[in-house]
């Protein structure tokens, strides 16, 4: 799929570096990241906690926390340098082109509003219909059973899997060109995890969007993604086609990650045997 993708990337980070400046000191978060994401590509960013994966996703939406300072480089989204965009323009870019599926689905929904109200608030500014029938259809499209009943519920009354389906429906209803999923299944059990991943990939492929999927689940990444970027200490240590990176890792860190997959051995150890 990567080979067939058009040349112009939808997301492009060039020499991008950022650091967190807190009272405790300065921590380098990203160090000279060069990354292109092609249209329609399914890209996974993997690495241990603190390697800078989420900071990359935040940088793409210009959503870096206040304590994170960009020290060099640029981020282009759909050909536009996001650092130079005015607040209205960046908001329009986020609304029209970026989708974000968070880690904790329940926390991604406002606890004080019924699901229907949240869908209405999200869809109305886009000029999308918000009548009961349209909202029911929207929930049915993410395979929610009894959607009319779910519309009347508060977030705390739905399961984690259902909340994630609602979050996906909310995001995909905007038809984003770039979907960022930050460990979207981390808080779900194994069976639901598989259903949710299948749903995300299916929706992304049908809409032709690009997926930037931040994950620790290398098995699922290998199954679903075209390309993997491996991050360690704010740097990209390896990238390439998913199967190639995971089956024949070149970087020591990638080998360590691969060896940590349950039921797999360090490829170098295997070779030595």
């Amino acid at each position: 799929m990567t080979a067939n993708a058009p040349a112009a990337p939808v997301v492009s980070l060039t020499g991008f570096s950022a650091e967190y400046r807190t009272r405790l000191g300065v921590t380098r978060a990203l160090d000279g990241i060069d990354l292109d994401v092609a249209r329609g590509e399914l890209l996974a960013i993997v690495g241990e906690s603190g390697s800078g994966k989420s900071t990359v996703s935040q940088a793409i939406g210009r959503m870096l926390p206040r304590v994170c300072h960009v020290t060099s480089g640029s981020v282009h989204v759909l050909g536009r340098d996001i650092a130079s965009l005015a607040p209205d323009a960046i908001r329009a870019l986020r609304r029209e082109s970026l989708g974000f599926i968070p880690q904790d689905p329940i926390a991604s929904l406002n606890p004080t509003m019924r699901i229907r109200r949240q869908l209405e608030l999200a869809l109305r500014p886009l000029g999308r219909p918000t009548d009961l029938e349209s909202l029911t259809e929207l929930l049915a499209s993410v395979k929610i059973l009894e959607p009319d009943r779910v519309l009347r519920l508060y977030p705390h009354e739905v399961s984690g899997g259902m909340a994630q389906r609602i979050a996906i429906a909310l995001t995909m209803a905007r038809e984003p060109e770039i979907l960022i999923a930050d460990e979207p299944t981390a808080s779900l059990d194994a069976q639901v995890r598989d259903e949710i991943l299948t749903l995300i990939v299916d929706l992304v492929q049908r809409s032709g969007a690009s997926l930037i999927w931040i994950s620790h689940d290398l098995g699922a990444v290998r199954r679903w993604c075209d390309r993997i970027v491996v991050m360690h200490q704010g740097r990209i240590v390896e990238e390439g086609p998913a199967a190639q990176v995971l089956d024949e890792p070149r970087a020591d860190y990638t080998r360590t990650l691969v060896a940590a997959i349950p039921g797999r051995q360090d490829p170098t150890t295997k070779e030595a045997e």
């Binding site: 959503m63 908001r91 986020r94 609304r95 968070p102 880690q103 991604s108 608030l121 995001t171």
Partner: peptide, 17 residues
């Protein structure tokens, strides 16, 4: 700092909303 506010921000929802 909660996720639903981040989600709203990234969805382009205006500050007053």
């Amino acid at each position: 700092k909660r996720d639903f506010v981040t989600t709203a921000k990234i969805s382009g929802v205006s500050a007053p909303v």
